Simulated scan of single mutants.
Amino acid sequence: MISQEEFTVIHTLKAQGYSIRAIARMTGLDRRTVSRRLKQSERKPYAKREYPSKLDRFKPYIQKRLEEALPKRIPSTEILEEIVLRGYDGKLRILQEYMGKWYTEHGFGKAEDPIVRFETKPGYQAQVDWTVIRGGKSPIYAFVMLLSYSRAPFVYFTDNMRQDTWQRCHEKAFVYFGGVPQTILYDNLKSVVIKRDKYGKGKHGFNDAFLDFSKGWFEPRLCRPYRAQTKGKVERFNRYLKENFYIPLKASLKGSGVTITPDLLNLHVFGWIARTNERVHATTLARPTDRLQEERKYLRPYRPEVSAPVKLESFTTNRSIPAIMIDYQTRLQEYEAIVPRRIDHAS
């Protein structure tokens, strides 16, 4: 497309008596372009061509899913999985461009991520947190433990944050991973610490029940005050869990009459984790599944010396289970035979 200035020059030179060949030579334009533009009394821009997109037939479905989740957002990777199952064979970039435009039109800007993450050696650190999934009279909390090296997560949903529940969730995570990391990083949870620097700088007053639980297994460590970003890996995963697991599941159950409970979420989450572990992590540039196999070599074996059995909820879904999940299931069955208590949901 030629500019308005070039269009004016072409007509000026023609009025001065120059031939089309001479005008083309003087302006560096093709003779056909010069000839075509001389036939126009004013510059007309080329009509923008609209090409069909592979995404077109999926846009009504995508729009419905995004509207169902508002004011929350469903990540493009989750929508991609859903439309691939419905026949989409295009690229993620096309979907991201469409969703970005859709969110902009609906007043949603790009969320900032201020979290800075630090890399650790395999088996050295895990980061643990409670995150609120649903508040109100029937709350749901997620216990999350993330191995810092592999980025492999463990998630368990409960309706309380009692100390016994807290400890049981740790035990389930250790069995799930096949061992215990050297250190675990926390923020100022009452389940962990009663008073920071109680006995001097860096000498904290830990919760006695939790300190007794941790002895001989791992070293609990605290983030700096008001610096939850220190455990940014688990903080970021908490958001990922809500956006990629909970919000899409909640949206898909909307209007179904199905009540979302901790048991329902636990029924689905481990299949979802198995799938997310197969994706290449943006920071490590490796699959958590692969790095976990390496990290497990450095975890301390976890074998609590107890005898009475306990019923443990299923860690499977109706989807196909990858081989690595079968290995987890075997260890969890062993756990049933050695751990005496279970986490009971409050009525």
Rank of each mutant, 00 (worst) to 15 (best):
L241H: 09
P322L: 02
V175T: 12
F218H: 14
I74N: 02
D89V: 15
T12F: 15
V192P: 02
L13N: 10
F58D: 06
G257E: 00
P288C: 02
V306N: 15
V155H: 08
Y149D: 07
W272V: 05
H281V: 01
R227C: 15
G135C: 09
W130T: 05
D159I: 02
Q163N: 00
I324L: 09
R287M: 11
E119R: 12
S19K: 05
C169D: 05
L189T: 05
P262E: 00
Y298K: 09
C223P: 03
T158R: 03
R236P: 03
D129R: 00
L29T: 03
A282K: 14
Q163M: 08
W102T: 02
E336L: 13
F157Y: 11
D164Y: 10
K110L: 13
E97N: 14
P181F: 08
E112Q: 06
V116W: 06
G28I: 07
P322R: 08
D164H: 10
G205D: 07
G232H: 00
E78S: 13
L265H: 00
F154S: 10
A24P: 08
N244A: 15
E5Y: 13
L189G: 10
G135V: 04
E97R: 14
T131Q: 09
K190C: 08
P262K: 04
C223Q: 09
T230R: 10
L292H: 07
V192K: 09
E243C: 01
F315Y: 14
A173Q: 06
Y18H: 14
G202D: 03
P153T: 06
E243I: 02
D263Y: 09
F7L: 00
R57Q: 15
Y298P: 03
I10H: 04
I184S: 01
R303Q: 13
P288H: 00
P248C: 04
P122C: 03
T131K: 12
L38N: 07
Y46T: 11
G135Y: 06
L211W: 10
P114R: 09
H106F: 05
V192L: 09
L332E: 07
P248G: 02
R25K: 15
G255Q: 03
R168I: 13
L222W: 07
R300V: 04
Q127Y: 04
I94R: 13
I194P: 05
L265S: 01
I115D: 09
R37Y: 12
E82W: 12
S256W: 04
L92H: 08
D113W: 06
H204K: 07
N207F: 08
K59D: 09
D212T: 12
L147S: 08
E68S: 14
I321D: 10
V132Q: 15
P122H: 03
F154N: 09
H268A: 03
K311C: 07
R37T: 10
R25T: 12
H281L: 00
K254N: 09
E336R: 13
G136P: 00
K48G: 13
R291S: 03
F58Y: 05
K190A: 04
P153D: 08
V306R: 15
A346K: 14
K64G: 06
I247M: 05
K64A: 15
I94M: 11
P139Q: 08
S76D: 14
S256R: 01
H170Q: 06
